[in-house]
């Protein structure tokens, strides 16, 4: 299962494996053995392809910053599952159904509006609790099925997104 690293505008699908000594980088058809040892704070020594590099290296979340041969580079790790989620098309993510019966408190979007993942679409009330329904992915609203004040049953279709036309690249 390949993981992705973004480096500048490019994406590189790689795998990492452990060997008897050190590790291997799998990139396309190439398998490149290497060893890396930590030598103090944010320092590491990397042996690869017959060369030894003294690195400065730090991670922050999914970002890896590396100083290699006098130059700084930033790489971003994209977890395979996150990658698939980001590129997922169609299916359940096109529709948002009511998790329980209730009524609509507020509608924040209208049909045809572009929304981003996580954006609040509407607020519903059920069992004396208000729940905000958010967009499961980036997309365009196809239908808003209810207006403020209307009630609905469990599993009722609340909002539908237009099916994504094409794979949306790897945007995370």
């Amino acid at each position: 299962m390949k993981s992705t690293f973004k480096l500048g505008a490019a994406e590189h699908a790689i795998e990492l494996s452990r060997a008897a000594h050190g590790y291997r980088l799998h990139l396309g058809d190439q398998v490149i053995p290497f060893e890396m040892e930590s030598c103090g704070a944010h320092r590491a020594r990397l042996r690869i392809a017959g060369h030894t590099h003294d690195l400065r290296l730090i991670t922050a979340g999914d970002d890896v910053f590396i100083q290699l041969d006098g130059e700084a580079h930033a790489l971003r790790y994209v977890d395979p599952l996150a990658h698939f989620e980001a590129t997922a098309r169609g299916g359940a993510a096109d529709t948002i159904r009511a998790p329980m019966p209730g009524s609509i408190v507020a509608v924040a979007v209208q049909e045809g509006e572009a929304v981003t993942r996580g954006q609040a679409l509407l607020v519903m009330e059920s069992m004396k609790m208000e729940t905000t329904i958010t967009a499961p992915r980036d997309g365009v609203i196809a239908t808003v099925a209810y207006e403020k004040g209307q009630t609905f049953e469990r599993d009722a279709l609340l909002v539908a997104l237009q099916p994504a036309a094409d794979a949306e690249g790897g945007a995370a």
Binding site: M1, P80, L81, F84, E85, A88, G90, G91
Partner: peptide
């Protein structure tokens, strides 16, 4: 997939592609 993972409970995780399904299995 959606029926079994949201209605019947026969299956646990829906996946959009074989790659994703196998990634979930690995997880």
């Amino acid at each position: 997939a959606d029926m079994h993972t949201s209605v019947s409970g026969v299956a646990d995780y829906p996946a959009g592609s074989e790659e994703e399904a196998i990634a979930i299995a690995r997880d």
